[in-house]
Structures are given as C-alpha cells and as structure tokens.
Design a protein around this nucleic acid. Structure first.
Length: 279
DNA sequence: CATATGTCCTGAGAGC
DNA sequence: TGCTCTCAGGACATAT
C-alpha cells in the first residue's frame, strides 16, 4: 500500500516527464468498473492536452502532476495503485494513460488492481484550498518537532491510530506507523495526549528517520509484489522492517528469544510491536 | 467537534 | 481439486 515513501519514490521516478508536453489523456479499456475521475474525462482531456508538465510533486500519499497552466492532476494510489513510466504489472486494471508529444517518451500509466484509487484535476486555487483547508494535514516530513506534537498531542486516541489520521499529518500509513512506534520505543496503544516530552521528540525523530530511510530504499514491496517504482523495480525497505508483519519474530532491539513481535488490532487495522521494549 | 464504524475493491491464502 | 470464506487497509460517508 503506497504510503509516503512509496509515493515519493514514484514521484522521483516520474521526474523525466517534467518539461514534456501532454499529447493525449486516455481512458484505457477496462473490463471492470472505472475508477473515480473528477471532474470527468472530458474536462481532463480539454484542460491537459497541449499542456507542459511543469513539475511532479507529492502531497502526503498523493502524486501531483503540475501543468504549465497551474492545473494539478492529483493521483491517489490508495491500496494498490501505481503511477509508472514502465510496463504496468498486468495489461488489465489500467485506469489512465497520458501520452506525450515526444514519441520516444514512455507513456505514463496509472494502474490499480483494486480500483480504489482516484484521479482529480484541480485548478491552482482549488489545490491551494485542498492543501490548506483542513481536510488533509501538512505532510509528515514538512513539520518540525513542535508542529508534530501540536498536530497529534491533543488526541486521546492511541498514538498509532492518531499517526494514521491524514487530517493530522499526511503521509503515514499502517506500515510506517508501526515501524515508527517501534523505533521510538513507544507502546502504540498509549494515548497520544499522554506522551512525555522525551517521547514526543523520539517519535518525531523516529517518523523522520523511518520515512527517510524507506525513501532511500525506494519503499516497501510487500508479499503480493504489487508495489513498484515508476521504472518497474521493487523497493527494498521490506528487508528492514523491524516489526511490520513479523508476528512471533524476535524483536530486533531486544535480541531476546523471549521478546517477540506481537500483533494486535487497532481501529480495524493490524498493529505490530514489541511488548518488552515499547513502553 | 472528536471519535467510531461501514463501505468500496481484488486476489492471495486458508480450510474443508 | 475446487469451492467458499477471510483478510489486507486508504479515504470517505455516515453515525454516535
């Protein structure tokens, strides 16, 4: 499931399209129900065709293609979406194709097996309103320690559940929330509002360290093998997971056979942690 | 307002 | 073997 590091990796892999001119916006044949495209395919074609790609940005877990006009094409991969310049994993589940005037340039594909992803075209003003309007919080890598605490610290929710709330901070998903709590040595069940000063600093640092290390590893390709970089290669951070999906394994910090990774459910999502060293 | 729950979706894997 | 069932979880609508 693409979270901040996976989406940032996609973004970086898409940078070769900056400066290219969009020739066509295509809705691929799709045997299944098409994904949500707002405000509609006709508007996408009319407003994007002929536009130069000025930048490829990221906001939380969304990829943002910035057109020369100022329009932003916001792509949300959600669970199984991929934005690639390479061949998609399969020839079905193709959701969007963008071709460029340079015929040698590869096509940009949005592929999404489960079809939960969305594509939304926003004007410059609409995008500004979206990123500052309170529906989504600031990017998890864009906040300092004080802002990090301010966004999370008033909640009585378990800290791991609060980390998942995109209205507080954008970009952290289920995998990296568990990993960050482990690195910080904090029990994921602890109410956010009860963390100590030292724990807030450790958690802010851990979130940054985990996300940045995962970006360097080009994200996590899980067992289903779905996630790929924009050029089609898998990530490698799954080899460094400390607790995620490692139920029963020895805790990498305790290094003791008695201290094993536990799996619990919080807010209908799996949480992994070590009861021995996460207080 | 804050928090909780149900919904969407496909395919892998378990269990019989 | 082949069927059915469960599960994975990001974001949002709706309920409390």
């Amino acid at each position: 499931m693409p979270e901040l590091p996976e989406v940032e990796t996609m973004r970086r892999g898409l940078l070769p399209i900056v400066g290219r001119t969009i020739a066509a916006v295509v809705k691929p044949r799709c045997a299944r129900r098409p994904i949500a495209v707002r405000p509609g395919w006709t508007a996408l074609r009319r407003r994007l065709a002929g536009q130069t790609v000025a930048d490829v940005a990221r906001f939380g877990k969304r990829v943002v293609l910035v057109a020369g006009s100022g329009d932003r094409l916001v792509i949300e991969p959600r669970m199984t979406g991929l934005v690639v310049l390479a061949d998609p994993p399969t020839t079905d589940h193709l959701r969007l194709a963008i071709g460029f005037q340079d015929e040698a340039a590869p096509t940009l594909w949005f592929w999404d097996r489960r079809g939960l992803g969305t594509v939304t075209l926003l004007s410059e003003g609409e995008y500004a309103a979206f990123t500052t309007g309170g529906r989504v919080g600031p990017d998890a890598l864009a906040v300092d320690a004080e802002a990090f605490r301010a966004r999370l610290g008033r909640s009585t929710l378990p800290i791991k559940v609060a980390l998942l709330d995109q209205k507080r901070l954008a970009g952290i998903g289920n995998l990296y929330a568990s990993e960050a709590c482990h690195v910080a040595g904090i029990d994921p069940r602890r109410p956010a509002a009860g963390l100590t000063d030292a724990q807030w600093l450790r958690l802010w640092t851990a979130v940054r360290d985990v996300l940045e290390e995962a970006i360097l590893c080009e994200g996590s390709t899980l067992g289903d093998g779905t996630y790929r970089t924009a050029l089609g290669s898998p990530g490698s951070y799954q080899n460094r997971h400390r607790v995620y999906a490692r139920t029963g394994a020895a805790c990498p910090r305790c290094q003791s056979p008695e201290a094993t990774v536990a799996r619990i459910v919080q807010a209908q999502r799996a949480t992994f942690y070590c009861a021995a060293c996460q207080a």
